[in-house]
Design a protein around this nucleic acid. Structure first.
Lengths: 162, 162
DNA sequence: TATTGTTATACTCTATAACTATA
DNA sequence: TATAGTTATAGAGTATAACAATA
């Protein structure tokens, strides 16, 4: 059952395009909304010289001092090689340190510097402000429902891959 | 207020990493869940030789016969140059046609071929099956709430950019 | 042997400028 | 001049194989 007129998109200067089939997929709705949120996040982080992935890494290192690159890559769900350039960017700005671990000289213990922690605080304040503005029309109960649904999707996928 | 133990991720073979700051961002939850859904979609489309963007274009052309590349690019929210390779892939497989428009020889009227429509039907059935499996633990009311929240995010962004 | 971090590489998606042909 | 489609190009994100150092 397709709605007659509701599932149409009116692009600013363009004509009406029928998106009803696509809009029937929750994954499509997720992608479009996430694209909006990522664009907003990119703007929030730009003054700090951070991108989504460098910011994510900075947060996880600050919240988990001493973790290794492999652990961080697993937590971020990125491949280990891809993390190298992300950490290089943070290290070159002296936001994090790669500290040698005497007990296992293969690994690095990742830690934020004072400068890194200060940037983390400032950037996080900005990101929160941006997100709250974007979500202003969505009440707390709805947000909670959305978050729980997202967690269910992640956990379902984890189960399916066993 | 951070939960004491709940916001932890237990990676299959890895240690526990504190993700609580990140999980406080709805955008982060969206990204992680979308990554899961996209991986699932990619698997569903692989047997058909389609990727997310080629599939999206195929759907929109099938549902909007005769639309132009500019209109399609606007509907998909991709830049016009990036659409060219997507349509090339579909056209080379004879799934769509670029028909010249006599009244305006600059534009193409995009249409699916019979083969394109048949693939659209088969692929869509598979994609629906995959998505339903992934969303099996989420009831209809929750899905509706999620979709409405995603639409609010998109519309809020549209307003903010005025 | 196995693991950590790294290099090299390639593929996809995305974004911008500039070209052509039409209008 | 303005628009539709295209080319060229560059930047990010992502994935795999293979290497050196270390366990």
């Amino acid at each position: 059952m397709k709605p007659a007129l509701s599932d149409k998109t009116h692009k600013s200067a363009g004509p009406i395009v029928d998106e009803s089939t696509l809009q029937g997929f929750l994954g499509y709705q997720l992608k479009r909304a996430f694209n909006v949120m990522q664009a907003d996040l990119t703007q929030a982080l730009k003054p700090h010289g951070l991108r989504m992935l460098t910011y994510t890494a900075l947060i996880l290192i600050a919240d988990n001092p001493g973790l290794s690159q492999s652990q961080l890559a697993a937590a971020m769900d990125v491949e280990r090689p891809n993390l190298v350039v992300i950490l290089d960017a943070l290290e070159h700005r002296a936001l994090i340190l790669r500290e040698r671990v005497p007990s296992d000289r293969r690994t690095y213990a990742l830690k934020v510097t004072l400068k890194g922690r200060q940037l983390y605080e400032k950037a996080t304040a900005d990101v929160k402000t941006h997100e709250q503005a974007l979500l202003a029309g969505i009440d707390a109960a709805t947000r909670k429902t959305v978050v729980e649904a997202m967690l269910l999707i992640r956990h379902r996928a984890a189960k399916d891959s066993l």
